[in-house]
Amino acid sequence: MLIFQEKDLFFQALHPAATLAYLAVIVAGAVTLCHPLFLLALFIPVFTALAASGGLDDWFQKARFFFALIAMLALINILINRLGGTVLLYGPVLPGLGRITVTLETLVFALVMGFRLLTVFTAFMLYNRTVNPDRALSMFAKLFPRSALLVALATKTIPYLLRKLQSAGEIAQCRGANFHTGSLFTRIKNRLPLIRVLLISSLEDSFNIGESIQARAYGSGSRTSYFRHRWRFGDTLIFIASFFALSIIILSLGRGWGGYSFYPYLEKIIISPHQAAVLPALFVMLMIPALLAWGWNKWNFLRWKI
């Protein structure tokens, strides 16, 4: 049921802190940088990493949802924005919005923002595919032990409750309840008693869980904790690459190299030699983990070394 599936992948073999650092740098870069080439330098590595983790089929399946959201945001930008100088099309006059004018600058801005959203989505798809929730949770359990227990309990309860809901539904159907005929409203109304049954029985069970964890001396003293995953050479490599990528992003933001002026007219894509220097550096740093993931699949020697 969980989105995460255990597979033989480079990013799954890493320490969760290393994978999280890499993804956090990509998301932070994507939401702060707005230069199209910088966004491309973030997207290509994360897309390659996802491809190396076997997530492309899933990406293309969800592409319809991504592009619907991107199209909606593009439409909002086109309808609202009046800052562009190169008018491509004069549209109709809409109440409350005035005359709609489609400008080249707004169109490019909408496309770049769509690309930014795509980069963030791809990074999260890589997260869902590669970060084991159990291991990530146990990493935070040292700082948030009670919250980690709360999340772990809730996570294990969802599939259990789903099975219970199904069996309660079958019992109700045996007793004459009808869930599949009538209007949508009737069908939903017929299912409401199931929520009541589930609420009572699950809360009853929760008391048993509470007594059970108390019987195992939960909360009786300081808690022992350990994290069994070792920090390996591959983790150090990913961490260093992510650190340098983050430094480049911060430097680019501080000096204004990562920005891009869309209005009133589009500025030149590369305006300074500094941008031309930091851009490939950022790309290379972020490509290192993606290439390692690819090499991990292809080259046993590399798998052994990292």
Binding site: F144, P145, R146, S147, L149, L150, V151, L153, A154, T155, T157, I158, L161, L162, L165, L198, L199, S202, L203, D205, S206, F207, I209, G210, E211, I213, Q214, Y218, G219
Partner: peptide, 27 residues
């Protein structure tokens, strides 16, 4: 929440209610 004194049964009840609320989204 970590710093509050809380009974194990309360944690279990909150977790179950969260699971129940979260379960509503899945089907």
């Amino acid at each position: 929440y970590e710093r509050r004194r809380i009974a194990p049964a309360e944690i279990a009840v909150i977790a179950t209610l969260a699971a129940l609320a979260g379960l509503g989204r899945v089907p």
